[in-house]
Simulated assay, not measured.
Amino acid sequence: MKDLLRANKGFILFLCLFGVFRTAVADWNPIPSASMRPNLLEGDVVFVNRLAFDLKIPLTDVIVARLGEPNRGDVVTFTSPQPDKTRLIKRVLALPGDVIEMRNEQLIINGVPGKYQVAEVTRERSHGAELEAVRMDETVGGTRQRIQVLPQKLALRNFGPVRIPADHYLMLGDNRDDSGDSRVIGLVPRDKLIGRAERILVSADYQGNWMPRPGRFGKSLRADAAEN
């Protein structure tokens, strides 16, 4: 055993450093579902900055220091507060202290209704069915992002108003009618945050012909600031 370790010490050191890097500094996250369409597609792999919010002891979830706070519009990865502890990726829409509600798909944050402008109408498949998909530019709470709604699909389109407590966040998928987000799993405590998804590293059509989608390589995931 000692000879084996000695012969492979360089590789073992590499694995240890690689594990430290992925759990404490930066990571990547493949997109397995349609919940963030149209901005993230199945087959995208996103770069996650694990130092955006917290410094953690490598290979653990123990927080050593806070390095930053999520902003509205950030796309973040986090551990589900539900018992299954699934790793999820959604967009932050409400911050601690906010009062948020949804009425017929329209978000209202701190009493100010969001504005919506239709960008395109297309067709998409959802759980085996082909449905009309309406893509809109949503301007709400100081940010602007492209979202998608599926009018024919049964979905939770109304909730609240809800006041967000300290160190909690409300997360929504950009594909609003096909996302298991805070409307299902509840508010997300801050200590469940993993990092901020900054951009798409690579992308391939794994549901089709597995061809790369080079036009998506390096695409930023930052939300735009809304114009006053």
Rank of each mutant, 00 (worst) to 15 (best):
F14T: 06
N49Y: 11
G19E: 02
Y116Q: 10
A166L: 06
M36H: 00
D3P: 00
R103V: 02
E138S: 07
S33T: 15
G208C: 06
E69K: 15
N110L: 04
V99D: 10
E42G: 08
L5Q: 07
V45N: 12
Q82S: 13
D177E: 03
I12W: 11
G208T: 07
Y206D: 11
R37T: 05
P189R: 03
G173Y: 00
E105P: 03
F11D: 04
I185G: 07
V46R: 12
A155W: 00
D174M: 06
A226C: 02
L150F: 03
A226H: 07
P81D: 09
L5A: 08
F18K: 01
D174G: 10
K56T: 12
Q207M: 15
L51G: 11
P214W: 01
S80T: 04
R222Q: 12
D74N: 10
R37L: 06
L95W: 08
G160Q: 02
E101V: 00
G128W: 11
P165C: 10
H168K: 07
W28S: 14
L41A: 14
L187A: 03
K90V: 02
L5T: 09
G173W: 00
S80H: 04
R216T: 07
L5S: 08
A34P: 01
P161V: 00
T77K: 01
G111W: 00
P96S: 05
Q145A: 11
E130N: 07
K56R: 15
V121K: 13
G128S: 04
F21V: 10
R163G: 01
W210K: 15
V20K: 05
E130P: 01
Q152Y: 02
N71F: 02
R196P: 09
V118G: 09
K85S: 15
R144I: 02
R66F: 09
P189L: 02
Y169P: 02
S126A: 13
R125P: 02
A26I: 10
L131M: 05
A7L: 13
L93V: 14
E198H: 06
V48I: 15
G173E: 00
I57R: 01
A166R: 14
L187S: 07
P38K: 09
A133S: 06
L221F: 00
S179Y: 01
G215E: 14
R37K: 05
A226Y: 09
A94W: 00
N175W: 01
S179P: 06
S179W: 02
S179Q: 04
R196F: 06
R144E: 09
S220H: 04
K85R: 15
P30H: 11
R157A: 02
R222G: 06
D137E: 09
A223C: 08
A204H: 08
G173D: 01
P58T: 08
V92W: 04
D224V: 03
E227Y: 11
M36I: 04
F47L: 12
N158R: 09
Y169R: 03
M136L: 13
N209R: 13
W210C: 10
L13N: 12
R213K: 14
T143I: 14
D177F: 01
P165K: 06
K153I: 11
L55H: 10
N29G: 05
Q145C: 04
V46W: 12
V99F: 08
I147A: 09
V64R: 11
A197F: 06
G195R: 04
L41N: 14
Q148D: 07
W210F: 04
R146S: 10
